[in-house]
Amino acid sequence: MFAGFYDEIHEEFREVVREFVTREVSPHSKTWDSEHMIERSLWSAAAENGLLGLAVDEEHGGMGLGDYRFRMIIDEELARANALSVALALHLHDDWVLPALLKFATAQQKQTWLPRFMDGSFVSSVAFTEPGAGSDLRSVRTKAVKDDDGGWTLNGQKTFIGNGISGDGALVLARTDGSEPRERGAETSFSLFLVEKADNPGYQPGRQLEKMGLTASDTAELFFSDVHVPAGNLIGEPGRGLEYAKAILPQGRLGVATSAAAVTAEVLRQTVDYVGQREAFGQSIREFQHTRFQLAELQVGLEATQRYVAAAVESFNAGSLDLVAASKAKLWASEQAKSSVDACLQLHGGYGYILDYPVAHAYLAVRLLTIFGGTSEILKETISADLTG
């Protein structure tokens, strides 16, 4: 990011993150990509370095680092190591599931789960989307029916679930009023549950989905067949699940925006180095006017993105980032990342298409950013609705 955005304490934290990435991530990332799975030991190592559950308060054993700049530093250092799959896995855990617990869980639930979120013993997934319900969560079919003992029986299918195979449980959005999707139930039709895989034979990850990028991050289908969910695993009040899902969207979308800014900056840095070393027609590629002009445009676009994302982070830190503002930041940053990385790949020429070069992996990875957490089209609907009332 730009000068003055981070304070000295953030740069001290960066040294911890950089050392962790150098030791625990960089030596293994190619293996994880080829095996389509991040080793579980990464989560334990991240926990030992204090990189999980940054926002958990001291009362529950955390550091209470609600300043999102600390989270951004993790993104930047993982982008620097070309480990975008790891960044995604951590975001799912810390920016989607954890906020639901911090905002809506009871004191007893926090005491039970928050330590496990921080020590790496419970890796979480977000199980909202289904084969027929992506951004349109009112089309969710998964149902939870209340049992005589106060618990719930869960049945349904989810898809596109990051950490779906490697994870220990999922934050599940389910219908709890007996309605059907065709009825387009009201917001009170849904509830949120933290469902644990252990000792639950009806909780079955399906096949691992082969993605075009971010291959080290496992993504799968999840199947729930008569899964017993204890009453204590209901998050918040029944019937308010859709409301809660919307409440965590600003942080989730901010996480996508900060990732996009980090990747854009790193790929541009790599591209500037490459065009200075690569020669064509007796001179470095950087000497061609077209290259210089394109680099200038990319730098201006990057700085605009960084300033925009920084403003969103400041709003988040102040507790005022709403869904519309987060949607704007994600829309701008993700679309800029997509176009900027594409331009950088072009400047690499034929080598940009070879997977030995990080720009090729970044090109495949950033294509998800305009989809994950709400497609660009859905974000435009959110923004335009705010404009027109």
Rank of each mutant, 00 (worst) to 15 (best):
F2S: 11
E8T: 10
R14W: 02
T22N: 13
K30P: 01
K30H: 07
D33I: 06
E35P: 02
E35N: 12
R40Y: 06
R40N: 08
L42T: 04
A45D: 08
A46C: 12
A46W: 02
E48D: 10
N49Y: 12
D57F: 01
D57E: 14
E59R: 12
H60N: 10
M63C: 04
Y68Q: 13
F70A: 05
R71Q: 09
D75N: 14
E76L: 12
L78H: 14
L84C: 07
S85A: 13
A87Y: 02
L90I: 14
H91G: 13
H93R: 06
D94R: 01
D95C: 15
W96M: 15
W96L: 15
V97C: 10
A100C: 13
T106H: 05
T106A: 11
Q109N: 06
Q111E: 15
T112I: 04
T112C: 08
P115E: 07
F117D: 11
S121V: 09
S124H: 04
F128V: 12
A133R: 02
D136E: 12
L137G: 05
R141M: 14
R141T: 13
A144C: 07
G150L: 04
G150Q: 04
L154R: 01
G164L: 07
L171V: 08
A174K: 03
P181M: 02
R182N: 13
E183G: 07
G185V: 03
G185L: 03
A186S: 14
F190I: 02
E196C: 06
K197M: 15
P201D: 03
G202K: 02
Y203H: 06
P205Q: 09
G206V: 09
K211S: 12
M212V: 15
M212S: 13
G213V: 12
G213L: 15
T215W: 05
A216Y: 02
D218Q: 10
E221S: 11
F223A: 08
N233Y: 00
L234M: 07
P238C: 02
P238K: 04
R240L: 13
G241C: 04
L242R: 11
Y244Q: 13
I248R: 15
P250S: 03
R253C: 02
A257K: 05
S259I: 00
A260W: 01
A261N: 10
A261D: 10
T264Q: 10
T264P: 01
T271Q: 09
G276P: 00
F281H: 05
Q283N: 02
Q283V: 12
F288M: 06
F293N: 06
V300Q: 12
E303W: 09
A312I: 09
N317K: 04
N317I: 04
L321S: 06
S327N: 04
K328W: 03
K338R: 12
S339V: 06
S339P: 00
S340T: 08
V341S: 03
A343R: 03
A343Y: 00
L347H: 01
H348M: 07
G349L: 03
Y351W: 05
L355K: 09
D356K: 08
V359Y: 01
A360G: 01
Y363L: 08
L364A: 07
A365M: 03
R367H: 13
I371E: 05
E381V: 15
